[in-house]
Amino acid sequence: MLLEVKNLSTEFKLKRGIVKAVDNISFTIDKGEILAIVGESGSGKSVTSLSIMGLLQKPGRIANGEILFKSQDLNKMSKKELKKIRGNNISMIFQEPMTSLNPVWRIKDQIMESIMTHMQISKKEALARTIEMLDTVGIPSAAQRANDFPHQMSGGMRQRVMTAMALACEPELLIADEPTTALDVTIQAQILELLYRMREKFNMAVLLITHDLGVVSEAADRVIVMYCGKIVEEADVRSLFERPLHPYTVGLLQSIPQIDDDSDERLYMIKGMVPNPLNMPSGCAFSDRCDHSMERCTKEIPELKEMSGRKVRCFLYESESITCGGIGATSASVGAMEGGLAIK
């Protein structure tokens, strides 16, 4: 086990109250595994990644929980220790490759700096390694492009540079926060393929944060679905897409336009919108948007329940007998889901 997050809660103290952006979540990542966290805006997926990296900004703070990286609690480390781990053992790539690179530095200088702060090697070796990494991530004529400034490169190129920078120190864990969102579809495919290849090559684990179920199905081994700061479902990628359990997951999958669905019917839609974090429904956070909402759902919050290798937080699966049937819509949705895709 490489990373173990135990009962993590992250809060934001605002004037009008406390927002629990991440509410008591636990998960693990193994070596060489790609774990995806999916959710819409406000689900707490990005706050989770920032909490792990220790990059939370005020008024956010970790209220509770442990973040064990190879059995060391990152949350209890000093800033100096954390800095050493960050970049050396854990790297991060962000959504916006434009703002994550320093515009007045050459590409090679930025990568070399990060290599030399974490590895004890000479300048010459660092340069050689920089060019090698740029080559690995698929930048043509890497030795020349290394002299470019960020603005001379396209979005896809910049994301490659970011990836090269993140991978330069051979991290054991890569946190990728929406790495493809700002990119075009054909470039998206390139970057996903790159992540996949790098995982094979360096046997690193990846925590992939995304809102795009298409990306998840392409790249991930295991998936966590988050809604309003809580994990609502966790499963390996195949079972999740073949038989989603939580009504939210089912709804998400169904509301995506299908590429090989020729009917002109209306798209399925989840009604309403994500509740205001300062004014959450008393029971299950999804209860007011759920098609299967029962009276109980509006009063109690269901537990995240483990069943046959996967987890789900829903009263529909309280007794084992129901699990076999699942939600009526589930089986019907499987057919429609094939060949689906995600928009954005």
Partner: peptide, 13 residues
């Protein structure tokens, strides 16, 4: 290529 770049929502397929 555009059609093919669209991620497929079914890892089995």
């Amino acid at each position: 290529a555009l059609l093919s770049a669209i991620p497929v929502i079914n890892p089995a397929n």
